[in-house]
Amino acid sequence: MIDRTVFVSRRNLLARGAFIGGLALHPRLALAAAGTDARLVFIILRGAMDGLAAIPPLNDNRLEKLRGQLAAPPAQLGAPIKLTADFAAHPALAGFAGLFAAGEAAVVHAIASPYRERSHFDAQNILETAGNAAYAVKDGWLNRLLPLLPAQSPAVALSATLPALLQGAAPATSFAPSRLPDASAGLKVRVAALYEADPLLHRLWSDAIATEMMAGASGSADGPGNSAALAATAARLLADASGPRIAVLDMGGWDTHAGQAQRLNNQLRQLDGVFAALKSGLGAAWSNTLVIAATEFGRTVAANGTGGTDHGTASAALLAGGRVAGGKVHGDWPGLDRLFQDRDLMPTSSLNALFAGAVAGLFGLDPELVVRRAFAAAPAKAMTGIIRT
C-alpha cells in the first residue's frame, strides 16, 4: 500500500521536476496542438569541433603543411568523401554526405560567434545566449524566439537539465530517459489516482505520461546516454501531432587536444548516427525539418605536439533536413593563406546570422524581427539562402 503522506510531502520536489522510473516531470511542460508543421532540432557540439577535419577543404597544400598526418584521416578510417569541387566530408560522416548528395544537408564553413577568446565555458555561454560578452545575457536566444512562433508549443531539451539556450521566460522543458528501472504500470495508475484531486500534480502527471508515451523512452535498449537513442526520442516527440516543435540535443567530447584522429572519428560517427536517427524517427515530418549542429569555436589549423589541435576560432556548422537548401557549402571561404591571429581559420560568417536567417525562414518570420528580439545584444544581418522555401 502506498503511503499518501510520502507523496504529498514531496509535492514541491515533484512540482520542480523529478524522475520516477523512467518518467521525467517538469512544471513547464504543457502539451498542446502545435501551430506550425515546421520542426527545428538544435545540436550543441560542446568542446569545439574541428571544422577543418569534419569538412576539409580539398587541394589546400597549406593544410597539409601545417597539420602533417592530421591533414587527412588515417587510411584505415577511409578516405574523405567528396561533397563539392572544393570540400569533402570526413569518412565518419558518410550518412551526412549521403544527405548532402540528396540535397538534404548543407554546410556553413568558416563560421564563428562574436567571441574571440579561448574559454569553452565563456564561448558556450555566448553561443547559447547570443550575448556580446560571456554571461552578459541571462536567457537563451532560442527561448527569446519562442514567443514569435505561430503558437507556443513548448521546446524540449533531451537532457537532464535545461541548457542555457532554452532558459528564460517562455515555456520550455527538459526530458531524459531515466537510468532507473521503469515503474510498474500498477504504480503509475495508483499515482495517477492519488493526484487526481490535485490540479497542479494531476496536470503534471498527465503531461509527463503523455510525453513518455510519445517518446517511447522507457527501457531503451540503446541506453539513455546514447546520442542516437536520444535523437530517436527527440524525433518521436517532434513527430507527434501534440508534441513540441523544437528540440535541443547536447553532445560533448569535441575537445581533441590529443589523439585527435581516432577521437574525432568516434565523435563524428556518433553525430552521423544522430542525423540518421532523426531522419528515420521523424518520418514524413523530416521534409519540414531543419537540423543545426554548431560548436562554440573551432580549432587551430596547425597540429600540436600530442597529435591534436588546440582551441581556435572559426569552424563549420552542419545543417540537415528537408527544409535546408542542401547540396551546398555556404559562406565565404577565406582560404588558409591568411589565418586569424596567425593560427586559426579566419571567421567570415556569423553564427548569429545563420541562426537568425535559419529560424526566420523555417518558421516564416520577419528576419529583422528575429534579429531584434533574439539577437539584439550582438546583432548580425540574417543569413539568406539557407532554407528551402
Rank of each mutant, 00 (worst) to 15 (best):
Q167N: 10
A169S: 13
L145Y: 04
A185R: 11
L162V: 08
L165R: 00
K188M: 15
L148H: 04
P163R: 04
R144V: 10
L180I: 11
S174W: 12
V156A: 08
V156K: 01
L165E: 00
F175Q: 02
S159W: 11
V137N: 00
F175D: 08
L142R: 01
V137P: 00
K138C: 03
P171N: 02
D182Y: 09
A155V: 03
Q167V: 11
V137I: 13
P147K: 06
N143C: 06
R179Q: 14
A170P: 01
Q152S: 12
T161Y: 11
R179V: 15
W141I: 09
A170E: 00
A185G: 14
L148S: 09
L149I: 07
P163L: 05
S178L: 10
P171C: 04
D182T: 15
S174A: 15
P150G: 07
A183W: 11
T173E: 02
L149R: 10
R144L: 10
W141Y: 08
N143A: 10
G140N: 06
P150M: 07
F175Y: 15
S159M: 12
L146Y: 01
N143H: 05
L148R: 08
L142H: 00
L149D: 00
V137L: 12
P150E: 04
P177K: 08
L166K: 02
A176P: 02
A164M: 13
L148F: 06
Y135W: 15
A176S: 14
G140C: 07
P163E: 06
S174E: 10
L149K: 01
F175M: 11
K188G: 08
R179L: 13
L180A: 15
G168C: 08
P154E: 02
T161V: 12
A176K: 14
A172H: 04
G168R: 04
L162W: 02
R179C: 11
W141R: 04
D139F: 03
A185S: 13
A169D: 14
R179S: 15
P177R: 12
Q167D: 06
L145I: 07
F175E: 04
V156R: 00
Y135L: 12
L165D: 01
N143F: 07
A160G: 15
G140E: 02
S178R: 08
T173C: 14
L148T: 03
A160Q: 14
G186R: 09
L148A: 09
P150K: 12
P163G: 03
L180K: 13
R179H: 14
G140V: 03
P171D: 03
L158F: 08
Q167T: 13
A172V: 04
L180M: 14
Q152I: 14
A155Y: 02
L149N: 00
V137W: 05
L165N: 01
P150N: 03
A157V: 06
K138F: 10
A172P: 02
V156E: 01
K188T: 13
L158Y: 05
W141T: 04
K138L: 12
D139P: 02
P147Y: 11
V137F: 03
A164H: 10
A170T: 01
S184C: 05
A157P: 03
R144W: 09
L162P: 01
V189S: 12
L146T: 05
A169V: 11
L149C: 04
S174V: 10
A176I: 15
G168P: 02
G186V: 05
V156S: 01
G168A: 08
L158A: 05
S159I: 03
